[in-house]
Computed example of a mutant assay.
Amino acid sequence: MSTSPGTGDRQDSPAHTATRLFTDHRELLFSVVYNMLGSVADTEDVLQETWLSWSGKNSRAPLAEIGNPRAYLVRIAVNHALARQTAIASRRETYVGPWLPEPLVTEATTGLAPDTSDHTVRNDSVSLAMLVVLETLTPLERAVFVLHEVFGYPHTEIAGMLDRSPAAVRQVAHRARAHVHARRPRYRARPRVRREATERFVAAALGGDLQALLEILAPDVTVWIDGGGARQGAGLRPVHGREKAARMLAGYASRRAGDLDVHYRSVNGDDAAVLFSGDSPYAVMVMDLTPDGDQVSGVYVVTNPAKLTHVRPDDEDSGQAPDQ
């Protein structure tokens, strides 16, 4: 997306100021919209629409009339994201197999995001497991939850963004929060525990070690494999239960493990493994842990090539765990 002013624009011109304000807040807008949609491609499209709305507004009215450009930009982006939900829902109806959010893969050591155009840190993206839970909310509930719980916007400010009363927003927020916490209690394993569990799981899965998988998987584990119909063996439904999951993972990985390289990365803020076949990304594997961190309660595997187009290999971290 091009948001640069023309060569004839002065540094203090309205066009230059509008561009600078949009660029200054682009990271925030990306994070808000991505957490609402779970898709990098759709997020970039929404940001393009936001820029067009923003630049069009500023061509008709002076910037001085906008008291809070940050809030104004977030409002535009949120409403464009809500409008895009209809098209996204239509696509999901014909999607083959389980749908998972598009992973945000960052370098384990630097925190930089190679899968985005400006290589900046996505600190405000929630975990892949949480994004899966957010998919069960209505678009309005998700918008309110993301704005309030993730970004800390007060209900009164959210009400202004969504053209609803503060009382209505508080009611939506209460309903969304109860829904999310019922499906995902608040806990987060310590970083070292997460790293160790990730390494153990990957070694067992890629090694086809059924007994090791039975030990690390929780009894009620669920495995989602999102292949989008483009990968053989991805399965059309999530797999529930330790024994079924262990057998499926051991069989699935053993068919390709020999020619796959493991790169340990951070995915949506969590330790994860990215599998490469040569220089091409093959899968992103993210594990969700039980509250004590001893077992894996959820496995999210994204193999759909369309969701891995921005994932790149890094020779320095191949086969190595993140720094301790």
Rank of each mutant, 00 (worst) to 15 (best):
G227M: 01
G251P: 09
Y34R: 08
A176E: 05
N79M: 03
A212W: 15
R175K: 12
R26W: 10
G278Q: 01
I158E: 07
R255Y: 08
P98Q: 09
A41R: 13
M287A: 15
S2F: 14
N68W: 10
H119I: 11
G152M: 06
H148I: 11
A246P: 00
E157I: 09
V262P: 00
Q232Y: 11
A321N: 12
I76K: 06
A41I: 09
N123F: 13
T156I: 09
G258V: 05
S165D: 12
T23W: 14
N68P: 01
M287C: 14
V262Q: 05
V274K: 05
G269E: 00
A64S: 08
S277N: 13
P322T: 06
A189H: 06
T110H: 10
L275S: 01
R237W: 13
Q171F: 08
V146N: 09
Y282C: 04
A71K: 15
I216W: 01
D323V: 13
R164A: 03
T290W: 05
L112T: 13
V78F: 01
V133M: 07
T156D: 03
R242G: 04
T198N: 13
N123H: 15
A234Y: 11
Y300R: 03
L47S: 02
N58L: 10
H16K: 15
W51C: 14
V286Q: 02
Q320K: 14
R256G: 04
A246C: 06
L308E: 02
R175D: 12
T19Y: 02
V302G: 07
D315P: 07
Q324F: 11
T309F: 01
R20L: 13
P291T: 02
T86G: 10
L162M: 03
L47F: 02
V105H: 03
T19D: 13
V223W: 07
H80S: 07
V126Q: 03
H155A: 10
G111I: 11
T198K: 10
T120W: 15
P114F: 01
E316V: 15
V274L: 03
R10T: 15
R184A: 13
E149R: 08
L47N: 06
R70L: 09
I76C: 00
G97V: 00
R60F: 12
V121N: 09
G207L: 04
T43A: 01
L137H: 11
A168K: 08
A253Q: 08
A218F: 00
M1G: 15
S318A: 15
D261M: 11
R164M: 00
D288Y: 06
L289Y: 03
P313R: 04
D124G: 12
P69K: 03
